[in-house]
């Protein structure tokens, strides 16, 4: 079973929920897909056993034999290439726009003028902490997009014989789509604030569009604050879990500690409810 934990707004508690849920599973694999700023390891404190570089393929131009025909730039839907013909004779490449699709190299009529070369954009760290198999993606500083790194985490490192917990980046962009795609159940973590609600609505639109099973988790829940409840009722979405706000909890979080044992039974119940809905 694959459970994705995501949120529209950052800082609502994805990692809190994802790591505590992983801890409560019998046979879990926790994958931190928030490769731009992974933080699951701060709480799970895994022993990293392997670090592997993650490469993407990018085109390399040989201007000595390039005929500046511009076919590569025309083929690039991401506008990552610019070709200037006579008299400038220049072919320019913008790596942060490249999606490594290979179209440019495919259409190049001159053998060797454009070749694909590996480019390291991040690292994948694999380890273990107690009974939890741990995997995290980490994008190198300055890189623009973690989407391909996340795709690799799911394709090459995910162990589907386990209960897989996918800790997603926030928002509704490509990285989130890549993370939650194919999940059996998606937890949308939110907080009972106007910002939390506003971004929750975007997440709901996304998961509905992707036709995924999902429920809402209200983190920092306060008795009497019905902001999220009213929305959920109106949209007929289940609030599958509430984690009450507590100062004690926030204090331990700030020290990189989570009350895993204390809330174990709550998260076991959540897991059971998810299993019933998948």
């Amino acid at each position: 079973m694959k459970i994705a934990v995501t949120s529209g707004k950052g800082g609502t508690g994805k990692t809190t929920i994802a790591t505590m849920l992983a801890y409560a599973c019998d046979n879990p694999q926790y994958i931190d897909c928030d490769a731009e700023e992974p933080n699951g390891h701060l709480f799970l404190k895994p022993k990293i056993e392997r670090v592997e570089p993650f490469n993407v393929l990018i085109p390399k131009i040989n201007e000595d034999i390039c005929i500046f025909c511009g076919k590569c730039a025309d083929a690039c839907v991401y506008k990552a290439l610019v070709v200037m013909g006579e008299p400038l004779k220049k072919t320019m490449f913008f790596d942060e726009l490249c999606h490594s699709c290979g179209a440019c190299v495919y259409v190049c009529p001159v053998g060797g003028a454009l070749v694909e070369v590996p480019d390291e954009i991040g690292k994948i760290k694999i380890g273990k902490t107690q009974h939890i198999d741990f995997v995290m993606g980490e994008l190198n500083i300055g890189e623009a997009s973690a989407t391909q790194l996340i795709a690799s985490l799911k394709k090459n490192y995910m162990n589907e014989s386990k209960t897989v917990i996918l800790d997603s980046p926030p928002g509704t962009s490509c990285t989130v789509v890549e993370t939650i795609e194919g999940a059996d159940y998606v937890l949308l973590v939110t907080e009972p604030t106007p910002f939390g609600l506003s971004d929750l609505k975007l997440s709901v639109e996304l998961v509905r569009n992707m036709d995924l099973k999902f429920g809402i988790v209200v983190n920092k829940y306060e008795e009497g604050n019905t902001l999220i409840d009213e929305y959920a009722k109106e949209e007929e979405i289940e609030i599958i879990f509430r984690l009450p706000f507590s100062k004690e909890f926030a204090q331990s979080y700030s020290k990189g500690e989570l009350p895993f044992e204390k809330f174990m039974s709550n998260f076991r119940d959540l897991l059971k409810r998810i299993e019933e809905r998948v």
Binding site: A73, Y78, A80
Partner: peptide, 15 residues
């Protein structure tokens, strides 16, 4: 209204 690569496209157009 392109999502990305607007600067590159516009500069290319100018050239």
């Amino acid at each position: 209204n392109d999502q990305g690569g607007v600067g590159v496209s516009t500069a290319k157009f100018t050239v």
